[in-house]
Computed example of a mutant assay.
Amino acid sequence: MIDNLPYRQVGTEDLRPGGLLCVADHASNYVPEEIELGIDPKLLEEHIALDVGVEGIAERLARRHNMPAHIACVSRLVCDMHRREDEPAVVPTESDGRLVPGNIGADVEARLARFHRPYHNALADLIEQAKPKMLVALHSFTPALETGDEERPWEVALLYNQDDTAARHAIRLFGEQGLTVGDNEPYSGKQLNATMDRHAEANGIPYCTVEIRQDQIETEAGQARWALLLADVMGRVALEV
């Protein structure tokens, strides 16, 4: 973490109202030294700890495509920013069949005070300053879960809860690129949409929650390709909403 903050902001030096703003809740696998999760360190490189590839895309969008980014700096296993405070999974004791023993009996209130609230308060402040035309939430998903052998065919997917206006445009535009596009897959935004529920839907701000399959963005080349594609598609979506 930078300056002991659970987030960092890129490309926010010269905010222009009415643009696009990127949010990456699961960009980091960092675990503070004083927090012992009790898991094999190798698991920190896998999807249960972070959304693989997302940080590189958010960086590129901010630095090369004029889309400022609010990026998490702590692993979702420490505190999941993409959960409500009252959800048990905000400090998960298991993920995709993997037990996280160090979180059993953890001081959830302390984690919320140290990580979750500063992250979301800073995001709310940034949104107030930037007055974005649209929010773009970035996530990635595995080709298949450890706990299930069903393959996931979508290269990219759009999640939404009540407001699907921007998602509909994005689904169409990604489809025109020849991609297999998921509609509220592989997760449903009706159940998993906490950050956008709070910062977009509650404030009447259009948004796209974009899920990219991890094998598309594991390399820097893949991240650069998707940053360019996202900048183009999201820019066109913003013109429609």
Rank of each mutant, 00 (worst) to 15 (best):
M81I: 14
E109H: 12
I104V: 13
A200T: 05
D80L: 00
A238Q: 10
E109G: 11
L228T: 11
L173T: 05
L50V: 07
E55Q: 14
E146C: 04
M134R: 02
C73Q: 12
D197P: 10
G222D: 02
L112K: 08
H26A: 02
I35M: 08
G222C: 09
Y119D: 05
L159K: 08
P153E: 00
R236F: 01
A194T: 08
E218S: 15
V52F: 01
V31H: 10
E109W: 13
A200I: 09
T142C: 02
N29L: 01
A144S: 15
R198T: 10
D164V: 06
D25T: 05
I48C: 07
D80H: 01
V156L: 00
M234E: 03
P153G: 04
T219L: 11
L37N: 02
N103G: 06
A200R: 05
V241S: 13
L230I: 03
A113D: 13
G105M: 13
K42F: 15
E201P: 14
V74W: 01
R198M: 10
E46V: 10
I71L: 05
D183G: 01
R152T: 10
T142N: 05
I212V: 15
D232I: 07
T165C: 12
N184M: 06
A238T: 07
F141K: 02
P92T: 07
P101E: 03
R64K: 06
L230R: 01
R225F: 08
A130N: 05
D14I: 09
H116M: 15
G148K: 13
T142Q: 02
E85M: 12
R236W: 11
H82M: 07
D163N: 14
M196E: 03
D125A: 03
C79E: 09
H120Q: 03
V23M: 07
N29R: 07
E55T: 04
L112V: 08
L230Q: 02
D25S: 08
K131V: 13
I57M: 09
L239Q: 10
Y187A: 05
R236S: 04
A238W: 02
D3F: 09
I35Y: 15
A221Q: 13
Y187F: 14
R84D: 11
P132K: 04
T165W: 14
L228C: 12
F115K: 00
H139M: 12
R168K: 13
G222T: 02
